[in-house]
Nucleic acid binder design. Sequence first.
DNA 1: CGTTAAACG
DNA 2: GTGGACGTTTAACGT
Length: 889
Amino acid sequence: MEKWMLIDGNSIANRAFYAMPPLTNSAGLHTNAVYGFTTMLLRLIEEEKPTHILVAFDAGKITFRHEGYEDYKGGRAKTPPELSEQFPVLKDLLQAFGIAQFELSGYEADDIIGTLTRMADESGRETLVVTGDKDMLQLASEHVTVAITRKGISEVDRFTPEAIGEKYGLTPAQIVDLKGLMGDASDNIPGIPGVGEKTALKMLHEFGSVEEVLANTDKLKGKMKEKVETHKEDAVMSKKLATIFREVPLESGEDEMAYKGYDKSILSGAFRKLEFKSLLERLDLTGEAGGESEDGGAAAQSAELDIVLLTEGDMSQLKDEELASIESIYVEAAGENPHHAEVLGIALAAEGKVYVVPYDVMVSEAAAKLKGWLADAEVNKRGYDLHKAALALSWKGITLSGATFDVLLAAYLLDPTDSGQSLNALALRYGLPAVPADEEVYGKGAKFKVPPLDQLALHLSRKADSVRRIARHQEQELEKNGMNRLYYELEQPLSDVLCGMEKQGITVNAGELEALGSELSTQIARLMEAIYAHAGDTFNINSPKQLGEVLFDKLGLPVMKKTKTGYSTDADVLEKLEPYHEIVRLILDYRQLAKLQSTYVEGLLKEIRKETGKVHTYYRQTIAATGRLSSQFPNLQNIPIRLEEGRKIRKAFVPSEPGWYILAADYSQIELRVLAHISGDEGLKEAFLTDMDIHTKTAMDVFGVPADAVDGNMRRQAKAVNFGIVYGISDFGLSQNLNITRKEAAAFIEQYFAAFKGVRKYMDDIVMKARQDGYVTTLLERRRYLPEIKASNFNLRSFAERTAMNTPIQGTAADIIKLAMVKMDQTLRERGLKSRMLLQVHDELVFEVPEDELELMKTLVPEVMESALELDVPLKADVNYGVNWYEAK
DNA sequence: CGTTAAACG
DNA sequence: GTGGACGTTTAACGT
């Protein structure tokens, strides 16, 4: 049997655009709408198995509706260029799929679809209409089902006439009456002002149609009667505008719309161009050749590379002149964790010539000269991810110094949120030859295999050459963006400092952790037993799904919040449920202890190096959008501290030498001090200049009371307001945090802004600046782009606005502690101190210190931290020490 | 491999 | 009236 699927192309592309995060391929082409459209299309084809498919588009020009009403669609915001550039791409892709598309000048997509559904009704063929536009519900009939996208585009609601009756109490034909009364802001259909969905439905249930409502205005009362009578004509016209024209002269025949499936090779070519990797895999197209040879360019280019693969025997070929001509290097360190990475080899690129040294040769006697060159800090080196390279090499006994330019680090500064930071993505961005993906050369996961030497050499050569060419572009871009100091004086030197800290590692006392672990095991077992007793059965407490069934289905506790897959059982919800049932407290305790056991006892034990008893984290300098560091393998930036049970984990972090101490120094209120500086707010500045307790000060101003009238609860609320301010405040967020109503939260915020007028001005100004420039910056000119600040989607736009407020604050704080780290490293060196900097936790630095340096370090560390950058308010760092990290409080 | 929850600043 | 706090990583579950 035939089954037709008619898709409203413009509507779905629009929905997809606003539902998907911004996505670009490495050529900078936006692809999110196309991607969203495609995933939806694939799902629908699979689910519906249509015999015919048509995608209808609006034909850009004026539609005949303008003849009646000048403003039709006039109120709609212009299509953003990021979306319009995707329409041609989408149309090409549909062609690759073998799917028919129509557009007809003078008509919109819904007119075309309306006409085809009329024909479907006449011939009785089953049809599914897919759109994001509720207007189209008017087309539903015995044979025609209308699918409306929900929650972005991830799901659709299917509407038959029965479903429409259930939901609205209307027939499909009455949908136009509904629009006639309530209007539609997005289509600039006026309707009757003040009449929304609720009122319109009420009137239609009573009278049946716009005409009948207008004929019976005497039965309405008060304001509503007045409004309806004065806007009679609007209602009639609105209804006309909302009515889909179903007599479009269509010439194309049914054959064109028949869907016969796609050609694998054509589609894989199209997906490759768009870099839809996940879709290639999903459709199992990875093995397909692709419509056009996109490898051709790279192959042609690499043919021009003169590759010299060096063996032990001919390492002597590497003369001083050759080394002096090297412009870039590429070190292949395989594996995610550089502390355990395999080094496959190194490529050294000069203009037009690349030397490749496989790992075996690198570690041989014959490579002494090369190793000397790599270790020479006076020799400037450009590379890709030299931080990882240097760390991986250091474990192999090879020193890499003299890094002066790293294209990964530069790419991060140029756009910290860009996801495409592979060498290939960077190469394509600057119009350079493509670099094949590592996955293609080595395979992935268990299938990882080092290819024959000549293939390896080619791959490393391409990379090294690519680095050389990318660097030239980036050097100019950094200069243009005013980021030279940020790059050359902060981030690049910091990279070395981080390597040192990572290689040094921190000692973790395994015995201490194991003792803690067995205590936890006992308590967890006890809790499990008690939980099962209350539940009347055993189940997996770690499964939110099973837990939800027990709490809400079996025990009948009230549902407070839902996730997209079921009941929410997070701590927030459980805390509200605590009064209802004893089991809830037990689950909260279980969760807490289970986290400690799995992540911090077992997880940390696995990371301890047997030989040294140390853990070596890997700080990543190119991940966080704000400029912060992140920490991995293990993450040492989230070791428990807030609750005593967890805080005990810190007892296991000890100095690596007997008699030494752990010393920790943290910035006090660095983010609010930064805010005081960049907003210039006089009250906030004054508070820090006189070293007041900032939360008490905030409470005084927000509640309008003197210092001695501020109680604990007021200070707690003020503290939450301060957090909110830093995060880019919203009344909803604050209300959630404080468990108060939105109104109350809004009142707090208003009070805050009335007291700190400079802060309000900063918040307004920075959002405006972001809209103008498209990005925000920190004090050191770190940049973050916020394209969504102009989105018409409320969610996306609001998020961007909060980010605009938060990033300069969080980012400047990150700048400051990074400055302190570089200075601290330098100071320790210059003074010949034995103390070592081990960890950074966003606003805290952790050291291990010999007894005889303790007194000095107690003053030196805060001094360096406080003088890292001069602001209009003082920076303050508190210092503590002890025999382990727990005691350094 | 995506979702949920929990740990940190 | 919408639907949300900012930035991360790890572990476990279940499709």
